[in-house]
């Protein structure tokens, strides 16, 4: 059976993926945000499992994680909130989180729960490629979970090829050498990087993340790639406008 992510990647369009931190702004917002995002025409969602020490994240996502943990979010609570999500939501759902909370939950138990609630993929920034291959690849695959790896402008060509060989969905292309949320638009450097990777003709599609905040950066990022992920800008939007206008936010990107 084809994973929902793989099916989505076959569609002839540029994909918009949205990241948000589960349990933010309010603990019980998770399912409602997912439903609204789907209804607004978003193609894929990354649900952030908050961590106390998010090394790769800038201030916006850090603050949302801190707030979510204060609200009482835990791995168990998140799975509870997602229990019935597949009754209404059809688009691919990924969980994005740091490795320690998953390790404490038990990696196998975590995979089982993901499969049970209908998660299609995982993004675990601090799970190293070699550890994944040695210890977890079989387990993830047995539970129908695609593991998504990151590459950056600094990643060597050789390593990109290796990552491509062990991926079977998409590669998360970090737009620049930075933590989340720190870019103000893309310049020539990014465009050259997007082009360089496009030329490599990888098996896996590339989806760009970090620094995409509006229609313009979305278009720039997807000129040479399959799609783009918006995180910090969406969280800022939630912080400033609350959830009533999620539709407007998405419309401004896609119109």
């Amino acid at each position: 059976m084809m994973n929902r992510i793989q099916t989505k990647l076959k569609e002839d369009k540029k994909l918009l993926s949205i990241y948000f931190t589960a349990g933010f702004p309010n603990l019980e917002d998770t399912a409602s945000i997912i439903n609204q995002l789907e209804q607004s025409g978003v193609d894929m969602i990354e649900i952030g499992l908050p961590f106390s020490d998010p090394l790769a994240d800038g201030p916006t996502i850090q603050a949302s994680s801190t707030q979510s943990l204060k609200n009482g979010m835990t791995t168990e609570v998140l799975f509870q909130q997602l229990k019935n999500i597949r009754e209404t939501v059809l688009i691919p759902l990924l969980l994005m989180g740091y490795f320690n909370p998953i390790l404490q939950y038990g990696v196998e138990a975590f995979c089982e729960k993901c499969q049970e609630v209908g998660i299609d993929g995982l993004i675990i920034p601090d799970l190293p490629v070699d550890v994944y291959v040695a210890d977890y690849q079989k387990m993830f695959e047995a539970h129908g979970l695609l593991n998504v790896f990151l590459i950056t402008p600094q990643t060597s060509e050789e390593r990109i090829k290796f990552i491509d060989s062990i991926s079977n969905g998409f590669i998360y292309m970090v737009s620049s050498s930075s933590v989340t949320g720190s870019q103000e638009g893309f310049g020539e450097e990014q465009t050259n990087y997007f082009k360089r990777i496009a030329k490599m003709q990888l098996h896996n599609a590339q989806i760009v993340g970090f620094g995409i905040s509006n229609k313009q950066t979305f278009s720039q990022a997807t000129a040479y790639t399959k799609g783009a992920i918006i995180g910090s800008a969406f969280i800022k939007h939630l912080t400033e406008n609350r959830e009533g206008t999620i539709k407007d936010f998405v419309k401004r990107i896609l119109e």
Partner: peptide, 22 residues
């Protein structure tokens, strides 16, 4: 502490049941 990951290393660390670092 229990085994877990802090600052890029698998080691013993003080954390909640859910793996948040205390």
């Amino acid at each position: 502490g229990r085994e877990g990951i802090i600052h890029g290393s698998k080691t013993l660390l003080m954390q909640t049941k859910d793996g948040q670092i205390t």
